[in-house]
Design a protein around this nucleic acid. Structure first.
Lengths: 349, 349
DNA sequence: CGTCCTGCTGAAACCGGTTACATGAGACCG
DNA sequence: CGGTCTCATGTAACCGGTTTCAGCAGGACG
């Protein structure tokens, strides 16, 4: 509750001098410095950062806006961000959009009011409008995980297209010819990029593209469940499914289990996003592991570079590679010989 | 970048009037109100919350200090907190202590400087000192998940003692007589409370207490792994193990798998903390599920009650019940008849 | 001994809002 | 028609720091 003026009074100096001592500025005589330090200790003085921020116009706070902190992928990203931010003296504020563009806009507005120094954003939609405000207030933004149609913002993400390609090639290598993909909303880049990688993999193996095997819904347990339910009704049934995130995968697994479909005996399942080793024993799913922690870390570093150098430099896009981790959820399709691929030439590895 | 003065100038009114319009205060003529609103829109004016906070002495920010946001239990708590805070106009800042008391103290100090309105804290140790500062600055604190020796702070947590009791009774009910417990640091209440519940359950079944079967290490994968390794060397070997958190459990599972011990065939394993259904399919572990989301929610609500009523009311302690969810990791011990319990009377359910 | 420089110090402005209080116009009343 | 009250409005202080700039003391130098 004591202010810098209380300290100044007790020490018999000006607030200027106290301020200098607190901030370790040169040019204060040893005697006075000691007097001030004593007064600070005496009064249990804690400088008011809000006042400081008002003057300095920097809050040393960054905001992270993402869809759901509860998703282990984002949690890990969040941790990576915090591990960069706190040691530099920055506080980190989180907001969950739940994929709602309205929420996102509201949060961004609040954050602008609160004068955050920068924003790390997992964009919810594809619109440019939400970022106008940040731009006009000169608040640096780094997009995380996803990109948007505005091609001016820094981005840090995983190579979704290549990841999906690799996963589908993995399935093709096992002998699958009819592969479905279940993904999130159409206007989210990770959805479309992963479908693109899927399509390229099919093309590379000269497999036909069946639009009916591509399903868009939402990046959620419920979405995965719904999509798999409807995929199971397709004739002929695909022998493998690519899920584009962890929640979808577990929804898919649930639908498969309920339908009595054995994985991988009857159907293979591969997905994006691995779980940290702390969260499971003997993992089952074949995944494309994304370097989530590293994504968070690098995004934060990039943001701080912008903040600290005030760099109006060129737009930067960092794309990290993922890695296929083959596990028990993917195997050769049932009765390879008799399926729809009969007569096709062998697929190159 | 525009200030309230710019708006006032453009609208031809005083800053007072602009302030009133922005905050929806009564007593501004319709004509002026409209002029101001026009000017606000014209200038893309965004009020500076830092300035507002300086004057109002409230930052509408709460801080959450916990051991590791990466732990699904805490992640879920975090989500519960955010879902209460944001709708009320409060921002939420997170900090990870990694169970370091030094970190904790540093964070608390920063948060005091930043004038957060309140703190939700998962305490790292048992000392009183870190909270002196918060107290002297009149910043309300609610302890989450754990309690400390200072018996003056509000607390919201799960009933650890009863939870451990229930889990151990579950094991005893299955026929186990020799049960080990692997837990975190001795100075963390969830460790000691759960061991207390364990001891009471043994006593209630008149089973002997073997101190060698109680192991303290850390709430981590590595801790669980280490403790199980050393427990496997005990003769006669226990037939069941109680892990007191999810990380320990997975470390334990790993050690068991490496040692070729079948769960639950050779040894049963039960643990605190369930995983959200989005993160696994067909879960394996018998757990005591804690209402993590609800813990976070109620802790936040309690904090806001303190904030908004300025209530100097009595200390409040909210203890929520957990629930045993029996699954495949617990079963009857191997050859019940021939083991060390031979000759003991049947244990009451 | 006067001048200049260096180093320490504090007065006061400033950051951008909020708010206590004064003011003035007009309505109403006796 | 003077007095009182209400309502809308603005002036200026205030929140608690930082920062600019001027002043002053003391030493070096010519």
């Amino acid at each position: 509750m004591n202010t810098i003026r209380d300290v100044a009074r007790l020490a018999g100096v000006s607030t200027t001098t106290v301020s200098r001592v607190i901030n370790g500025v040169e040019g204060v005589s040893e005697a006075r410095r000691r007097r001030v330090e004593l007064a600070v200790a005496d009064l249990d003085y804690v400088p008011n950062a809000v006042a400081r921020h008002l003057r300095s116009k920097r809050t040393r706070t960054i905001a992270v806006v993402l869809s759901d902190i509860t998703n282990p992928f984002f949690t890990t990203i969040a941790r990576g961000i915090q591990d960069v931010a706190w040691p530099r003296g920055y506080a980190v504020t989180f907001a969950n959009t739940d994929e709602s563009e309205t929420q996102e806009r509201d949060y961004l507005r609040t954050l602008v009011q609160r004068q955050v120094d920068g924003v790390l954003l997992v964009p919810t939609g594809n619109a440019a409008e939400p970022y106008r405000l940040l731009r006009s207030q000169r608040i640096p933004v780094v997009l995380l995980d996803r990109h948007v149609s505005v091609r001016q913002l820094d981005e840090v993400r995983c190579d979704s297209e290549a990841g999906a390609y690799a996963l589908v090639r993995h399935l093709i290598g096992l002998g699958h010819r009819r592969i479905a993909v279940v993904t999130g909303r159409r206007d989210i880049s990770t959805s479309t990029d992963r479908v693109a990688g899927y399509e390229r993999a099919l093309a590379s193996a000269e497999l036909p593209l069946d639009r009916d095997l591509i399903r868009y819904d939402s990046f959620s347990l419920a979405g995965g469940y719904r999509m798999l339910k409807s995929i199971l009704a397709i004739e002929p049934r695909p022998t493998a499914v690519l899920a584009t995130n962890n929640f979808i995968a577990f929804g898919a697994l649930r639908a498969l289990r309920e339908a009595g479909i054995d994985v991988p005996g009857d159907m293979s399942l591969v997905t994006f996003d691995d779980l940290p080793e702390e969260w499971h024993d003997d993992p089952f799913l074949t995944v494309l592991a994304q370097p989530a922690y590293e994504l968070g870390r690098q995004a934060a570093e990039l943001l701080f570079e912008r903040l600290e150098t005030g760099a109006r430099g060129k737009r930067r896009v960092i794309v990290l590679p993922g890695a296929v981790i083959p596990r028990r959820s993917s195997a050769a399709p049932p009765n390879v010989v008799s399926d729809v691929t009969v007569g096709r030439r062998p697929v190159p590895a």
